[in-house]
Structure formats: structure tokens, C-alpha cells
Amino acid sequence: MTAIESGAAEAAPSRPAPVLPRLRRWLAFRNISAIYLGVLTFAVFAVWIPDTFLDWTTWKTVLDAQAIAGLAAVALVVPLAAGVFNLAIGAQVGLSSIVVGWLIVDRGQGVATSILLTVAAGVVIGLVTGVLVVRARIDSLIATLGTSSLLAALVTAVSGGQQILGVPDGLSRLGSGDVAGFTYPVIGLGLIALLVWYLLERTPVGRHIYATGGNAEAARLAGVRIDAVVVGSLALCGAVTAVAGVLVTARLANADPTIGPSYLLPAFTAAFLGSTQFKGGRFNVWGTVVSVYVLAMGVKGFQLAGAPVWIPDVFNGVILLAAVAMSKLQTGARRRARASTAPTS
């Protein structure tokens, strides 16, 4: 494998390597383990419970039900790529969900205005968190743990701990309407994922984000404005989580003050599992989206098969640990290979 790689690229450094080795490298288990695991899971359930599992409506439900979790995970990819942990992601989804409901129902604002204000609030939350990280120099893990608690308090204060009922059709249609069978949340996930992917993988801004996450000090010495990158990535994350929060309220047709935290762990699971896919250890959008759905498919399969309720958690945990361990083994092997050829100095 390695011989093919190096031979191909050495022969044509400036042109892309020939198709076959590239394809083979791309298809390597370590590169797309989640897809293989997904195919395996699919095969198992397709044989085990073909009647329910192979039903198209099952798939539509899974696709739709995971769209918001997917959005939260995609939102999380941005700060993670910049080397920032955002533990407030669940609280941000929760707050946005409450705020949009509160604006529409309690304050009588229009649907469009409310959504815009909510997204703006999400951006502000991201900016404030970012400033805490770069100016007050609070470690992002701690800063977002702190803001997460503050946001939870804000959720309770705004909602009084009660569900906000009576969300108008204008909003709930966003959660349930569809185009060609794809619900708006699914389309929203697709579009936003595409945008974030473009930003991270194709633009100079994305390069700066990954450079900051890779080695902030070295990035600074290369002229990257690492403070701006950190603040900006949290602001973008805030905007996307706000959209996720709006869609939560739209889908439920009410705003639930307890729902936010449940998005935290799945988002991290998907982002970390996703980082082992496609990009050899980099947090990336498509790896994350694929991870969300591979995990969801497994969980759905077990539910349909009538497995005990604790099985899905086992599945999530095992997949995450296995995928991350595999990617570590791979980088470890690479490092050892590198060490054995290094010159003594």
C-alpha cells in the first residue's frame, strides 16, 4: 500500500495521483471505518428484521429524527477544528429553542423576526464565550462549562421551567414540511453541512481554523489571527446551534426547557467519531454527518429488533471507542515508522 502511494506521487508530484491508488487509499478501512461499520450494521439488521428495518418510512424517520442532532454536531465541528471545546452546545440548543418560542408566543413577534433574533442571540453567545476564552484566558473547557450553566439558568428564567405551548403553524411547518420527501430539518442539515464544509475545507479561513486547532502558537507565528479564529468559530457554532434550537421548537410545536442538554453527548460522540473518518484525525463535517447516521441506524435497528433498552447505549459507546482506538493505533504505527527512520541528531 505504502509503496504504491509513494511511487505514484513521486512520479507526478504536481498532478493528482492516479485514480486507482487514490481510490484504494480512500476505501481503506481506517479511512472510512464508520461506513464499513454502517454497512455491516445494515446487513445484520436487513437479515435479522427485514420487514421493519428495510421499510422506507423507517429510514425517513431516522433521517428526520437525527437532523437536529446532526446540526448540533456540525456546529460543534467548527470550534473543535479550531482547538476549542464547546461544552455549552447542548445548553445553546436549549436556549435557542426556548428563546424562539418565547419571542413568538410570549412577545408576539413574527416568525421570521423571531428566528433572526434567535440566530443573532446565538452569535452573541458565541462571541461572549470566545472573548472569555481569548481575553480572560479561561480554558475553553472551563469557560464553556461555565456559560453552559449560565445558559441553563437563562432557559429556566425565560421559560419559568414550563413548556412554552402554542407555537404557530408558521414555525411548526418548518419542522414537518418537506420537499420530495426530505423534511426541512434534513434539507437544513444538508445545506448547512455543505456551507460549513466549504468554509473549513476550501477557504483560507478554514485553513486558519485548522492551523489554530493544530498548533495555535505556530499558527500565530505564521500570521494567523488565532484570537479572531477562536471567537469566530464559537460565533459560527452559536449561529448553527441557534438554527438547531429553532428546528427543535418547530418539530415539537412547543418549546421544552429540558431538551437542550440531551444534544451535548451525541454531538461530541459524532464529532469525535467523525474525526476518525476521511481526514485521518481531523475534525470534519462529512465524517461527523456519516457518524450521526451510522450510530442512529444501529440504534434504530436495535429498537426495531426489540433489544433491551440499554443496548443502544452499548452500541454507541463501543463504536466510538473502537473507532478512536483504531485511529490511534494507526497514528501510533506511523509515528513509530517515522522514529525508526529518523536520523540521529
Partner: peptide, 18 residues
Amino acid sequence: RRLGAIVGSSARENLTLP
């Protein structure tokens, strides 16, 4: 390794970063 480069990134990305 600590200041001169983002060691996990490709040589290409390091070279063009500034």
C-alpha cells in the same frame, strides 16, 4: 516542532499558510 509548523497538517498546508 512546537513553533515552526503545524506538525499534524500536510507539508502543503504548512508551506502556504502565511
